[in-house]
């Protein structure tokens, strides 16, 4: 790079003022700035993000076993098989269910908590939260501090049919049916049980995120609303949500990506895909296909499909936000 700007400097020395601006353009400072802050990140991005993605796409068109350098190009056969693979389709169904339920439930609860903590205080005097709001804020953040895999393992003990905390409590409250009831082993309760754990683990984080954004809204707006006679619920729906909608959109997309993955939680709670595959998710199926079945080509096709679903989800969230009157431009 430095070699290219040397000729530029010599030429500009001869040509005078108009070219001087050009010299400034290619000065060492400027070029090195671009190299360091644009060139290197772009190269890194290409090598570590785009290139592996293209590779995965290529592998998805082969019958690669994953354990040898040999593979045959088989076109779109993997994709054709994918859409006739009832277990994979079941996994897609479960992932999509998580995608619909998880962000919505988590964010509604997080939003409710955040509103109560920041705005739920007495209705006279300045706008403020509950008395011990800072304590609640800290306590509800606790689950987020614990790594996901630990959360999953702890909850699998809680859900244990014979010795678990949950069935113990239910039985002491007189629920005899809870004796040996397998929360994670019954197709009707498995997915709900898993969803509860994920929500429990993440509500605190999104609550803190929303608290920060609500605090960014000028208090005068809330005061004005109160003077106009708006109740707390009305304030939350008509004032808070529209004013922090960018944060909600971001949170929605991240929650959605997590829901589409969910691998860690599933590995701890339902490593085998759950009863009747009722909690099997795409990432789990991908993992078994690649490593225990030795079908890396087929697994790559699953990865590409998962990527497409993720992109589609992000597009839908952006579109919904735009159609409902939100700013499309991201606040920088």
């Amino acid at each position: 790079m430095t070699s290219t700007d040397t000729p530029a400097t010599t030429r500009s020395g001869v040509s005078g003022p108009p070219v001087r601006r050009r010299r400034k353009k290619f000065s060492f400072d400027r070029v090195s700035f671009f190299v360091v802050f644009l060139g290197i990140p772009v190269v890194g991005y290409l090598i570590f993000v785009i290139w592996p993605f293209l590779q995965a796409f290529y592998y998805s068109l082969t019958d690669w076993s994953g354990f040898s350098p040999d593979m045959n190009f088989i076109g779109l056969k993997n994709y054709v098989n994918l859409f006739q693979d009832s277990i994979f389709l079941k996994a897609v169904g479960n992932s999509v269910t998580l995608l619909i339920v998880l962000p919505f439930v988590t964010l509604v609860i997080a939003m409710a908590f955040a509103s109560i903590i920041v705005l739920g205080g007495p209705s006279n005097g300045p706008i403020r939260g509950l008395k011990a709001s800072s304590l609640y804020r800290v306590v509800s953040f606790f689950p987020y501090v614990i790594p996901a895999i630990v959360i999953a393992i702890i909850w699998s003990f809680v859900y244990d049919p014979s010795a678990g905390l949950l069935n113990g409590i239910l039985q002491s409250l007189g629920g005899n049916w809870a004796n040996s009831f397998a929360w994670l082993g019954n197709p009707r309760t498995a997915l709900v049980s898993v969803i509860f754990v994920i929500v429990w683990g993440l509500v605190g984080f999104y609550m803190v995120l929303f608290i920060a954004s609500i605090k960014g809204v000028p208090a005068e707006i809330y005061e004005a609303a109160r003077i106009d006679g708006a109740g707390r619920f009305r304030t939350a729906i008509s004032i808070t949500v529209p004013l922090i909608r960018d944060n909600i959109q971001t949170a929605y997309i991240y929650m959605g990506i997590l829901a589409l993955d969910a691998f860690v939680y599933m590995a701890g709670l339902e490593a085998g895909g759950g009863p009747g595959n009722s909690t099997l998710v795409i990432s789990q199926r991908l993992f078994t296909t690649a490593f225990t079945k030795g079908q890396f080509g087929y697994a790559s096709a699953m990865g590409v499909t998962l990527a497409l679903i993720t992109l589609l989800f992000a597009a839908v969230v952006f579109a919904v936000n735009r159609l409902t009157g939100g700013t499309n431009e991201v606040s920088e």
Partner: peptide, 8 residues
């Protein structure tokens, strides 16, 4: 992209 390219 990064997520989707997990296998990659």
């Amino acid at each position: 992209f990064f997520r989707g390219a997990a296998v990659a």
